[in-house]
Structure formats: C-alpha cells, structure tokens
C-alpha cells in the first residue's frame, strides 16, 4: 500500500508539472496515475517514508544552492582554460574514498562530481571513486578529496541521515 501511494504521488506530481493546473487535466491525471501505479508498484523497491520529506527539503535548501554555486564557478574556470592560448591543463587520474554509505547518496555524489566541469566520475567500486581531472591540484589523496568532494559530502551527509 505504501509503495502504491509513493508511486502514485510521484506520477501525479510529474503529471501536474507537465500539464499545469486545470480541473479536467487533474482528473485525467488522477486516473492515469492510479492505473499506472497499480501496474508498476509491485515491481518497485523504494517507497517514501515520513523522514523523506524532511530530507527532501534539506536537499533542496541545503544541497542545491551549494551545487549551483560550485557549478557556475567551475564552469567559468573551465571557460578560462579553454579560451587561454596556452591551454593550461594538467590532466590526471585520481582516486578518492567516500564516507557515504547509502546507494542513493553515493549516486548523487558521483553525479555531482560529473556535473561540475573539470572532474568526471569514471567508476565507483564500493567506497572508491575513480575520477579524471583536467587540472589536478595537490598530490595527496586527502587534498584531492577535499578539493573535489569535501563540501558535497558534508552537505549530503547532513541530508541523508
């Protein structure tokens, strides 16, 4: 039942985002979401719980602002690298160890690392993350970790328990 409600809620929110507010559309949306949720929910593995709402809010207000600041800053840095005539890159492969444990938070961390330009997650094996970096700063694993994932991980650790 809880799975059914979670799937229904997620589908309905997507429907509202897609169509906007309008009584007819909302009614059709409820119908479609009900049918789809009945079909899909036996196969899902994840369902919402009470504490997820708090995590969601903290994710939106704590993590996303940090992420967007990092995104813009590193985009501008990359633009400088690309436009400068000497192409000052110092590429390298680094490996960092993350302290996050749940699959979801590791997924979000890896995605954030890829989305901020200059670093790409190549592989995640348990707690090890392989990263290609356009301009490596520092030589120790600790410095790499602090530069790439330190802030993200502190914010995410606060969000997911």
């Amino acid at each position: 039942m809880r799975k059914f409600l979670s799937v229904f809620l997620a589908l309905f929110v997507i429907w509202v985002c897609l169509t906007g507010f309008n009584v007819q559309e909302l009614l059709v949306g409820v119908l479609v979401a009900l049918v789809l949720a009945a079909l899909i929910s036996p196969k899902t593995v994840y369902s919402f719980e009470g504490k997820d709402i708090r995590s969601l809010f903290r994710f939106i207000f704590q993590y996303l602002p940090l992420f967007f600041m990092k995104l813009v800053a590193s985009n501008i840095e990359m633009a400088k690298i690309v436009l400068s005539p000497s192409l000052p890159i110092q590429p390298g492969f680094v490996k960092i160890h993350t302290n996050l444990h749940s699959d979801l938070s590791r997924f979000i961390l890896a995605n954030s690392i890829t989305l901020t330009p200059g670093t790409i997650t190549m592989d995640v094996q348990d707690s090890e993350i392989l990263i290609h970096w356009v301009k490596v700063k520092g030589t120790e694993e600790k410095e790499h970790f602090e530069e790439i994932a330190g802030e993200f991980e502190r914010a995410l650790g606060g969000v997911f328990r």
């Binding site: 995104l71 985009n75 990359m78 192409l87 890159i89 590429p91 330009p117 790409i120 356009v134």
Partner: peptide
C-alpha cells in the same frame, strides 16, 4: 582544442550542464 578523449569528454559535458 583538447588533446585526448578524456579531456574532450570533459569539455563536452559543459554544454550539458550550464
């Protein structure tokens, strides 16, 4: 401008983010 495949992928992820 980038020299190898890794750096080129890096450069092209810029378009898909910002």
């Amino acid at each position: 401008r980038m020299p190898d495949v890794f750096n080129r992928i890096q450069a092209s992820t810029k378009a898909t983010t910002l």
